[in-house]
Each structure stands twice: as C-alpha cells, then as structure tokens.
C-alpha cells in the first residue's frame, strides 16, 4: 500500500509546482506594490494560447515555452505601463474592479479569436509515458514539471539574494517609500518584476494545458487556487509561495486519495486553519 501512496503524493507535489508557477508572480507584485491583480490568470491564459497556437504551426512543445513566457511578460508590461499604474494609489477595491474588468475582456477576446471549444494539446510521445521505479509509476511530464519549477525557484531565489536588482526588489517589498527615498527606481523595478511574474504565469499556463486543458474560462479556473497559495504563503515571499503550493498540492492529493468523501472540503479547511494560525501567511511579514 506504500507504493500507490508515494505515486499519488508525487502527483500532488507536481501539481503544487504548477500552482507555484502560476501564483508566484502575483505574490511578489502584491507584496511590493500592494497591487491586487485579478487579471493575473489572464496572463497565464495568454501563455497557454501562445503555446497552443505555435504548436498548431508545427513548433515543438519545448520551443513554445520560452515564447509563452516572453509574450505573456511583454503584454503584461504593456498593460502595466498604460493602465495599471494609474490605479496604484487607488483603493484595493478599485484595483479589483479594474483587473476583473480586464479579465472579463480577456475571456471575451479568447472566445472571439479561438472559439469556445477545448484546445487539444499533443505532447511528444516521450513526455506522455511514465517511468517505473520500485514499482511506482512516475509520469515523465510531471517529472519535467517539477524540474522546471525547481529551476525557476532556484533562479528566482538566487537572483533575489545575490544580484543588485534582487536587492532592489527586496528593498521595495520591505518598504517601498524608504527604497524610493534611497534612490531605488521603484517604478522601473516594479515594471520588470511585474513582467517577470506575468511571464512565469504564462509559462505556468503553457505547462498547465496538458494537465487541466484550455478554454476561454481558463482565466478564472485557477483564480481561487492562486489566491489561496498567495494568502497562505505570505505576500511577497517566494519561499512562502513555494511551500504553500507544495502543501496545497500534496494535502489535496492525499485528501482525495485517503478520504475522498472529504475531497473538496479539505483544501479549504487547511487554508482557513492555516490563516487563523498565521494571518499573514507562513512567510508573511505584515
């Protein structure tokens, strides 16, 4: 009975990695600028549609991933420069309204250009099989997913801790006004961070299609899960987001496997109790 459980937990872990990629950008932008961006899922959807379109043109799957990252990042920074920056000083609720409006528009646009149907994705055969190790099946695709997410985490943490730009980001997250006063160009730092975060969402979107599919409603499918990861992890914390996403993915999978009757409840119960215990999230400072 150990082997299947390990397999299930492995799948949950991989799923958590996916959630991490989708939510880390939102966590950092929320932490730094207090900007509530509910259109974050739309940038993930942009990445997903970019991947599907390019594969339709005959591109190999791996080549579409950097493009999904780039296109989502570039589009997001366009919105950041023209639209979002106008509401940084507005209340949270105004930001919610603006970004929900944008999310609505993105759903309508996706339905207009791609139709309402499911987008089929065909991965290369070697990604679709599974490896057997000690009698346990490990999906190659999920192994790949975990590898990508860990690489991204390593890069992010490294960049944050050891580069000048990272120091500026940390300063801006800690105290935006103080950082500004010390000569950090918070405006530019934020634009770059925003593009990076949305790009990662785009990458996550492209990687998610294989596991959950893609239709115009994708923007909203993950919204609740992403919010849970951000809140539980703590604003502006990469390690927190990672831990929260893993916790969520694994407890979700374990719950479904051991107590399927509790299936849908468990993830929300975990969230509510964690937040009552630590209202600012696991790694939150405020």
């Amino acid at each position: 009975m150990i082997a299947p459980a390990v397999g299930v937990l492995f799948d949950g872990f991989a799923y958590g990695m996916l959630l991490f990629l989708l939510s880390v950008g939102l966590s950092v932008t929320l932490g730094m600028m207090n900007f509530v961006n509910l259109a974050h899922g739309s940038f993930a959807m942009v990445g997903a549609y970019v991947a599907v379109s390019l594969m339709g043109l005959g591109w190999p799957f791996f080549a579409t991933l950097p493009c999904a990252f780039l296109v989502a990042g570039v589009i997001s920074v366009g919105f950041e420069r023209t639209l979002f920056r106008r509401v940084y000083r507005a209340s949270d609720l105004q930001q919610v309204l603006l970004t929900i409006g944008l999310a609505f528009i993105s759903v309508a646009a996706a339905a207009w250009f791609y139709g309402t149907m499911q987008q089929p994705v065909r991965l290369p055969v070697y990604l679709r099989t599974y490896a057997t190790f000690m009698g346990i099946n490990f999906s190659i695709y999920r192994l790949f997913l975990i590898a990508v997410a860990l690489a991204v985490t390593g890069l992010l943490v490294g960049a944050l801790d050891y580069t000048r730009f990272g120091a500026q980001v940390r300063a801006a997250v800690d105290n935006q006004r103080m950082a500004q006063g010390l000569g950090v160009d918070v405006d530019t730092v934020f634009a770059i961070t925003f593009a990076l975060g949305s790009g990662l969402a785009g990458l996550g979107g492209a990687l998610a299609i294989e596991i959950v599919g893609l239709d115009p409603n994708f923007t909203f499918t993950y919204l609740i899960y992403v919010l849970i990861v951000v809140a539980v992890g703590g604003l502006g914390s990469i390690r927190g987001s990672l831990l929260a996403a893993i916790l969520l993915g694994v407890s979700d999978a374990a719950g479904k496997y051991y107590v399927p009757t509790l299936g849908a409840f468990l993830i929300y119960l975990v969230m509510v109790s964690l937040l009552l215990w630590r209202p600012s999230g696991l790694f939150g400072r405020r």
Binding site: D11, Y15, V212, K256, Y257, P260, G263
Partner: peptide, 19 residues
C-alpha cells in the same frame, strides 16, 4: 468514488480505482 466537480487533477482518484 465521487470526484468534486471543480477538480482539475484526477490522479489521486484514479489511483484509488486502480488499488
């Protein structure tokens, strides 16, 4: 086994069936 409707990942349920 009954799977929640809003459920993006099936692998745990599938493993239960396999067991």
């Amino acid at each position: 086994v009954r799977v929640p409707v809003a459920n993006p990942d099936f692998s745990a349920f599938v493993q239960r069936a396999k067991d």
